[in-house]
Write a protein that binds this DNA or RNA. Structure first.
Lengths: 331, 331
DNA sequence: CTGTTAGCGCTTTCAG
DNA sequence: CTGAAAGCGCTAACAG
């Protein structure tokens, strides 16, 4: 492999000259520059990125860490991150955190291979996160809260979202509203449930534990939870699924049991995934500003990188998307 | 930032000793190792990944290059890649090729930041690809063919897939079959069309140019192409959409015009995207073995990395998924 | 088992 | 405008 040394030799100049020429410094005469470039071309010279990163002690790349690269992608979020990253002339790489401490994500975080990172992956431990943050890599967390001076947060207001969903159901005349939850450990889930409770309370409705069914954010889980609900003799008026995937699973269950949505029962989801528009009936749901989350997170990284003092916490709000899965209750 | 030098000093050993200790070499006594590790801990030492990559001249990571990180993800494909990458103890990063020569992808390819790459991105030029391959990075191309000694290919048999789709329509009694194509430049599209032509020929059916409508693989494009088809006075018996996205768009168009699928007209798609199962009616389509493509591609990278001599070309076959959008023609 | 030392390939002062 | 030289942080001979 040709190095800059070879290029310099072939061009008949000093190494530093070659380096300057290749990096478009204006200290180099046009003629010299030509020579060097020609030499580089004939040798098929490629700069070694690591060597220069090492020297400059910065990488110009930030990482987006996700629990699973192959998972359901937050496509909009990525787009947000991507747009501002490239606007700042930085590179973006995505890596997964499968494998915990052995994962690519941890390695990149830990070995200073990136200048900053945006994390949306529950399986990176808090300790590791703090540790990485401490030594100077700006870290923006998207899915949980960590009280550390070097860690920043952007979250969407899940309490408000949960509240809106529930309130919408209530104002459509439903009073018996079930909540099919995500995994108990999920922060998002806890907050949405919080919103659900608040709404119930504000409208003086009772919270029945029989209508809090455990799900897990998967379609399958939504299906099972719904079956369970159906197995209980009495149905609620409406169901708030903690995410759309589960609502889709629920739809299957209802179909199997000949329960019509929204005639017999209204349902609302959360997330506004692509599918929700196509399912029968189209799902009314709470949409999160995913693009904005991504863009904001990336912005923060750059502000921190620039040494600006900024807040540690940002909260974005949600939007209700009305489709056809909720109907006023005809009493 | 603490370096290995600091660690060595604090531990009272030589730099090399520290390095060995940190890398679990068995040449180091347990006691020394303890000392070094303790020192590293108190200094919050993190190895600098680049420095060691530079020294070892390998990175242990391979890249998966996609046209757009935020695009419709080939989730299964990524999973395939991921599984074999981590089985080989390698890291995987995904980067996007938006921005052409300025993109992260090109930078990583070109600056030797990865040991190998799998490319599924039309916007990386052939020249660049070959150039990168030439200097030794194993490259596996997923979406096109390039005749270069250093470039490897895995593709799914699109001719066969196109043939199957068309044949399926024919054996259901349809003789006037339209083809809504992808972008003219797309290799996949060309091959699928080839299969379509072959099937028509084998069954002695005519190829009418009025039934070859230009699309672009997007939902919107499928919608427009379908509108166009509808605007012509006569409808075909069936339509083969070069991908599912376009078929979904087509469905919208038909709905608007009160044309019932599959009663009035049968349609078949290609890809088996997640949506196709949920759309009304569920889409009959050609499924590609995406996971296998990903896994095989990653396998190849490692074989090449190990200096094994392997074929330059692999072809996987497709599968027809029967759902409800095709109906036998009642003449 | 431990220490000395020579680079990996590049950037960047600092003198010409 | 150009060149010599000093490292960035780490690894791996090699010699004790």
């Amino acid at each position: 492999m040709a190095t800059i040394k070879d290029v310099a030799k072939l061009a008949g100049v000093a190494i530093s000259t070659a380096s300057y020429a290749l990096n478009n410094s204006d200290r180099i005469s046009a003629a010299t520059k030509q020579k060097v470039e020609a030499a580089a071309k004939t040798l098929n010279y490629k700069k070694n990125g690591f060597a220069s990163d090492l020297k400059r002690t910065k990488t110009n790349t930030i990482a987006l860490i996700l629990s699973d690269l192959s998972g359901p992608f937050y496509s909009e979020l990525i787009k947000g991150v991507q747009d501002v990253t490239s606007a700042n002339n930085y590179d973006l790489i995505a890596c997964n955190s499968i494998g915990g401490a052995q994962s690519t994500a941890v390695k990149f975080l830990t070995e200073k291979r990136v200048d900053g990172a945006i994390i949306l992956a529950h399986n990176i431990t808090d300790e590791l996160t703090i540790e990485s943050a401490t030594y100077g890599t700006p870290l923006v967390l998207l899915d949980r809260y960590l009280d550390d001076n070097h860690v920043y947060h952007v979250e969407v207001d899940n309490i408000q979202g949960g509240y809106r969903a529930t309130e919408y159901l209530i104002t459509h005349g439903h009073t018996e509203i079930a909540y099919i939850s995500g995994p108990a450990a999920s922060n998002d889930n806890i907050l949405r449930y919080q919103g659900y409770q608040n709404a119930l309370m504000d409208y003086h409705l009772h919270l029945h534990s029989r209508w809090h069914i455990q799900g897990d954010f998967t379609r399958e889980g939504g299906y099972r939870a719904t079956k369970l609900l159906i197995a209980q003799k009495k149905l609620p008026h409406a169901i708030f699924y903690a995410n759309d995937e589960m609502a889709v699973g629920g739809l299957h269950a209802f179909k199997e049991n000949n329960i019509r949505i929204p005639e017999d029962l209204s349902i609302i989801g959360y997330d506004d995934i692509q599918l929700s528009e196509y399912v029968q009936p189209p799902l009314t749901t709470i949409k999160q500003p995913k693009y904005e989350v991504g863009a904001l997170a990336a912005h923060l990284v750059f502000q921190i990188l620039n040494g600006e003092k900024i807040d540690h916490h940002y909260k974005l709000s949600t939007e209700l998307i009305e489709r056809a899965s909720v109907q006023p209750r005809k009493s």
